[in-house]
Design a protein around this nucleic acid. Structure first.
Lengths: 102, 102
DNA sequence: TAACTACATAACGTGCTAGTTATGTAGTTA
DNA sequence: TAACTACATAACTAGCACGTTATGTAGTTA
């Protein structure tokens, strides 16, 4: 994400649930159950855990995650049939620096 | 605005038109015609000028301004029948500092 | 007071967002 | 191969955002 679409990124952030997801992903180990496979520190938290913790249906949860992925704020990793999500700290920092010029 | 409602502020920012308004208000003198009354540096730009430059109807323009006012990002001043808007730099800086912790 | 002006409010249409349940599909496991 | 699992997609609904035109209203000016 070299070019920042400020409006798109702000729309992605302007949601209580998605802010919540980003917050949880700061500490995947502390915020989610232990994962059998997939290192939470390396790849992030499992889709299923995030969706369940959100308390919405699976499609609704997956869509929120997709919005964050499309905005370049989190990174998805598929592994062994599961999908893990982690924050893209570099992209978030870049976005924050852009927002700071508002 | 001591308490920051992050979601509400982000929703206010997540609009091309409102980002545009905030940008214009950085330099009211440069971005708008000279005003008969109301110092643009002290009170900001006149509602009419902003709405016209947005290129939308008067009610639509006024609503965008109201969203920004309600989010605490700009300050409205009524004077002699006109309403002027200026950035609330302190509030914006505070908001940016909160966003930086996302 | 009367007319005008600036802005707000009302009423309405349209498209997007976010939720749901149902179903499809690709990859994993037995 | 067959069954299962994780996730995506489809189809639908409800609510909100944003635009419009029409109208109301408060403050200013003559």
């Amino acid at each position: 994400m070299s070019e920042v679409d400020l409006e798109a990124a702000l729309k992605a952030l302007a949601s209580e649930r998605r802010l919540q997801i980003l917050e949880w992903l700061k500490d995947p180990v502390g915020n989610f159950p232990p994962q059998e496979h997939g290192d939470p520190l390396e790849h992030g938290a499992c889709n299923l855990f995030i969706v369940e913790k959100l308390g919405v249906s699976q499609p609704a949860g997956s869509r929120h995650l997709k919005v964050l992925v499309d905005a370049g704020l989190i990174i998805a990793t598929r592994r062994k049939g599961w999908t893990y999500y982690r924050r893209d700290e570099a992209a978030i920092a870049l976005l924050v620096s852009h927002i700071a010029t508002i």
